[in-house]
Amino acid sequence: MPNARTPGPWTLSAWLRILLISRAGAFCFASSKGTDASVFWCPCQCPHVLPVVAETAAPPRGVDLLDLARHSCRISVLVTRDGHQHLLVEDSGRSLQLAASGVSILEPVRLTSSVLWSPEELKQRLNALKCLNSLCWTGRLQPAFFPTEPRCSRLRRVLRALDGSIAGAPHREIGLALFGRARVEQDWADPGDHLRDSVRRAVRRGRSLMNGGYKRFLL
């Protein structure tokens, strides 16, 4: 994990954090561990990241500018060694990331972006563009741009199984955490092994996601 620091003089508000890293080219970056981690994805790997060019806003300044000081969301800016800026906006569990080249985005800037994307990227990039436009007008990341993942309940179970497996818990103990004591006491010894198989599949799926399978969710 690259080292990061927050230089006090650059902080525009309590919600803005400036992160500097000494190494570029990693697949993703995280500013910290735990539930407060800010994760930055590489735009080459994740089409949800919107590439933009930041240009100096010459006077008179209109409303069509990105001004970080105007937003109440948590904002983190990561600057890589090659000078690229990665802007991450976080709001109530939702996030929007921009990959910006050009002038510093710490000042009000005018953003431009390509209008030609590959068919594989088009849907995600258009959604990010609409979300950015909404953010600039409302100051928030609106839920409409972040539909619920239909597999979220199953994926939560898979991640809990993975956590238990990594911690060294036996499969029966993982089953207790996933399905409850009553279900385990009733079905664990069933000759069909259906409940045991469910735990095994959840652990196997979790390890597959951990070992690179999660990249499919970025598409």
Rank of each mutant, 00 (worst) to 15 (best):
P143T: 04
Q186A: 15
P147K: 01
L129Q: 09
V158I: 15
R154V: 06
A177K: 04
D163Y: 13
R140S: 04
L178F: 09
S114F: 07
G168W: 06
R151A: 15
Q124S: 12
G168H: 09
C136E: 02
L162K: 10
S134K: 04
F146A: 02
S165E: 06
L176E: 07
S113M: 14
E107Y: 03
E149W: 13
S113F: 07
I166S: 08
G139S: 03
Q124M: 11
K123C: 13
P170F: 09
T112Q: 12
C136A: 03
L176K: 03
L135Q: 01
Q142V: 08
N127D: 00
I166L: 14
C152A: 14
W137G: 00
P143W: 08
V158P: 00
F146Q: 06
L132D: 02
S118H: 13
E173F: 09
P150R: 08
N133D: 06
P108R: 10
V184A: 02
P170M: 05
R110C: 13
P150Q: 06
L141Y: 05
L135W: 08
D163N: 12
W137T: 13
L132Q: 05
V109L: 07
A128D: 10
R181T: 13
C131A: 15
L129G: 03
E120G: 06
V109E: 11
F145G: 00
L96Y: 04
P150F: 07
Q186S: 13
V158W: 10
K123E: 15
Q97R: 08
R157L: 15
K130T: 02
W117I: 00
A182M: 11
S95T: 05
V115W: 03
L141R: 02
G139I: 03
A128L: 07
L96A: 09
A169H: 14
L98E: 04
S95K: 07
A169C: 13
A100S: 13
Q186I: 01
E121C: 12
F146E: 02
R140H: 09
R172N: 05
V115S: 02
R157T: 11
L122Q: 13
N133S: 10
N133I: 00
L155E: 07
A169G: 01
S104P: 02
T112H: 06
S92E: 11
A177Y: 02
N133F: 06
P147V: 03
T148D: 11
V115K: 11
D163V: 03
A144V: 12
R181W: 04
S104C: 11
W117A: 12
D163K: 08
L111T: 05
